[in-house]
Amino acid sequence: MSDLTIVLALLPVLIIQFGLMIFALVDLIRNPRTVGPKWLWGIIIVIGNIIGPVLYFIFGRRNY
C-alpha cells in the first residue's frame, strides 16, 4: 500500500479530530465565562487529542 493511500485513509480521522479541536478552541475564545482558567482549557483541548475537547464541552462550559 502506497503512502498516498495511507494519507487518504487517515484523512477523515484527522478532519474529525482537528475539527473537534478547532470547534472547541473557537468556543473557548468566544466564551465569556468558563469554569476554571481559560489558558488551562486551551492546553487541555490541544494536548488531550480526542478526550480534551470532550472534557471542555462537559466540564468547561457553563451549560446551564
Binding site: V13, I16, Q17, G19, L20, F23, D27, I50, P53, V54, F57, R61, N63
Partner: peptide
C-alpha cells in the same frame, strides 16, 4: 451545548 455534534463525532472517531 453542542452535544449533538461532539457525541457522534467521538463515536465515529
Amino acid at each position: 451545548n453542542y452535544k449533538i455534534l461532539w457525541l457522534p463525532a467521538v463515536f465515529v472517531l
